[in-house]
Structures are given as C-alpha cells and as structure tokens.
Amino acid sequence: MQKQKKIPQRKCIACQERDSKKGLIRIVKNKDGKIFLDESGKANGRGAYICRDVECLKKAIKTKALNKSFKIEVHNEVYENLLKELESYEN
C-alpha cells in the first residue's frame, strides 16, 4: 500500500476559503518591495494566496488584505496592476 501524498493547502486572503496550493494564485512581495502575481509559485519573497477570481481580488483590495499580509502600506496602483494581471490570466 502506497502512502498518499499530502496536497498543500492554502487560504485565500480575501474569502478565507481553503484550496490546494495549485488552485490559488500566489501574490509575492520580494525583498525590493515589489509586489506581483507569481504564477509559478516559486518566486522568492513573502507570499499571500488568493482565488483565481477577480471578485476575490476586489474584496482583498476593499479590505486591504495585502496590507495585513505583508505588514506594509500597499499603494492603489499596485492593486490595479494585480487586477490587470489577474484579468489577463483569466482570458
């Protein structure tokens, strides 16, 4: 009998729902303070996870969830860039 491999679970910072690591998109803040979507899930830096849904990102923007996750003030243009990036992934 083969031992079943554990699937890493992460929680969306907006809706608080759990999903597999691959089912969510990772948002990274690197050591230079740059914040971006990490499709590979392997970029260096502090990560926060969000559903692959524009509505979840909008909710995260409204509640300033990234500010809490990264413990910094995240500017509106960063949120707008993340929104554009996420919309391009969905198409």
Rank of each mutant, 00 (worst) to 15 (best):
86 L>E: 08
33 G>L: 06
55 E>W: 02
66 L>Y: 02
66 L>T: 06
20 S>T: 15
33 G>A: 07
82 L>V: 06
36 F>L: 10
11 K>S: 12
51 C>L: 03
57 L>H: 09
61 I>P: 04
39 E>Y: 09
80 E>R: 08
62 K>I: 00
81 N>I: 09
11 K>C: 04
55 E>V: 07
19 D>S: 12
78 V>C: 15
71 K>R: 14
32 D>I: 03
90 E>C: 06
17 E>R: 04
34 K>C: 06
41 G>V: 09
13 I>P: 03
43 A>V: 04
12 C>D: 07
3 K>T: 15
80 E>I: 01
25 I>Y: 06
6 K>F: 13
59 K>T: 08
10 R>Q: 07
28 V>D: 11
29 K>L: 05
38 D>R: 06
81 N>V: 04
72 I>H: 02
12 C>Q: 01
56 C>I: 10
85 E>L: 02
37 L>F: 00
38 D>E: 11
2 Q>H: 12
1 M>H: 14
44 N>W: 00
77 E>G: 10
34 K>H: 05
25 I>P: 08
23 G>N: 15
66 L>W: 01
88 S>V: 04
41 G>S: 07
51 C>K: 06
26 R>G: 10
87 E>Y: 00
58 K>I: 11
37 L>M: 08
12 C>A: 05
88 S>W: 01
57 L>S: 06
33 G>P: 05
74 V>C: 15
53 D>Q: 12
61 I>H: 12
65 A>M: 06
9 Q>F: 00
53 D>A: 05
58 K>F: 01
60 A>T: 11
84 K>H: 08
23 G>P: 05
64 K>T: 09
79 Y>D: 05
61 I>R: 15
62 K>D: 06
76 N>H: 09
53 D>L: 03
52 R>Q: 09
49 Y>N: 02
11 K>W: 00
71 K>C: 03
40 S>M: 11
76 N>W: 04
76 N>K: 15
64 K>L: 04
77 E>C: 11
24 L>T: 05
59 K>R: 08
72 I>W: 01
